[in-house]
Amino acid sequence: MKSVSHDALVVLDPRARILCAAGCCMATALATQPVAVIPALCFPLIVGVIFRFPFRRLSWMAVRLNGIFILMALTTLPFVDGPAWRSVGPLTITSPGAHLMGVMILKGNALVLSCAVFLSTMESASLGHALSRLRVPTAFVQLLMSVIRYIDVLLEEHARIRLAMRARGFCPQFNVLTLRTHAVAVGALFLRSLDRAEQVADAMKCRGHHGTYAATRTLHWRTADSVWIGTALSVIMVMFWLGWSV
């Protein structure tokens, strides 16, 4: 995985970013009222605007996510019983149906936005170091960092296999030949992965690896990080208050 060149929130400590994202996601997932989700939608938006987050990169995600919600609404709303709320052409939307869809759409967008703004531009190395400092088990952090390290290697490997397929005139269609070719390519990729895993394990053993994750970077918690954590906590409290008061 390549590190992202434009990290909008680089001034914040990675631990603060992870805690903000986790807290906002947890509170949003628990919300059951549309009004309670609005702060969770506004908070990452404001953070993104302040830190100049490249929102344009989320446009395809927003189209895909809300496309799924429109599809869900069209297939779900006719089956929700209750008092009629609005009529759109032949479709009558009931109050419980509108509530269900409102919560779903707001929560879906708020959750994805929180994750994207706080975490998507974070450097992979920072993610590993921050998780390590947040007392996530070493074995898990090591696994995560190894996956991040080798995704790039395997993407290159897969690109080489695809190039070889194309050089032999392979043109994917929905037929047995395509499936057979893809199966052999997948098999070859897994085989090379397993071979490389053995090499990596041997290399780690040779270098005296004893199961600890060595984080060479020092993370500095600043006042700004505490301020943003405090703001996130306030947003979460407002969400719970709005949820209870409805």
Binding site: A139, Q142, L143, S146, V147, R149, Y150, I151, V153, L154, L155, E157, H158, V186, L189, F190, S193, L194, R196, A197, E198, V200, A201, M204
Partner: peptide, 14 residues
């Protein structure tokens, strides 16, 4: 761990 990591990365690529 290297075996699990490499297969996880392979899953990601597949």
């Amino acid at each position: 761990i290297p075996r699990v990591a490499l297969l996880s990365a392979a899953f990601f690529v597949v």
